[in-house]
């Protein structure tokens, strides 16, 4: 039921999303990670040893409406059509992982950190990497809003 009018497809199939960005450096393993599980559990973890050495870990169940909106954002991005074959692989500077299960497709993409659109333009797959780049920002924005509003914390915009 495309209740949101988007192209998110039905919501009867299993949905899962996980995003990770991080690196290991002089402040230890610093990362941000979140996931939406099929049952609606949203988990968020942020570990930055630089400012405070405690990991922020939050979880909350989101409603089906939120899951649908998440699917809609993913579907509109058309990320599922992309492939990470020609994306810069993770390196010492850091890694990103995006794993999505939706519409009976399962992607698990990895790449390096992307500093800006300049990195996207200079890559071997600028079109695909741009899709990834913007989708990740939109997803982070969505999750940061959900977590910060629910818990009244300020997520670190790493």
């Amino acid at each position: 039921m495309a209740a949101t009018g988007g192209s998110g497809g039905g919501d009867q199939d299993e949905f899962y999303l996980r995003y990770y960005v991080g690196h290991k450096g002089k402040f230890g393993h610093e990362f941000l990670e979140f996931e939406f599980r099929p049952d609606g559990k949203l988990r968020y973890a942020n570990n930055s040893n630089y400012k405070n050495d405690t990991m922020i870990r939050k979880e909350v169940f989101v409603s089906p409406a939120v899951l649908r909106e998440c699917r809609r954002i993913i579907a509109d991005s058309e990320i599922m059509k992309e492939d990470d074959n020609n994306w810069p692989p993770p390196d010492r500077v850091g890694r990103q992982e995006l794993e999505i299960v939706m519409n009976n497709e399962h992607i698990s993409f990895t790449t390096s950190k992307i500093g800006s659109l300049v990195d996207v333009q200079g890559s071997q797959d600028p079109e695909g990497l741009r899709v990834f780049y913007y989708l990740v920002q939109d997803l982070k924005c969505f999750v940061f809003s959900l977590i910060s509003l629910h818990f009244k914390i300020k997520p670190i915009q790493s």
Partner: peptide, 20 residues
């Protein structure tokens, strides 16, 4: 499921992993 991406091919490397 149709699967796609390097994440399926990589062996566990440093830093690889969900911390959730």
């Amino acid at each position: 499921r149709k699967t796609k991406g390097r994440g399926f091919r990589e062996e566990a490397g440093p830093g690889r992993g969900s911390h959730l």
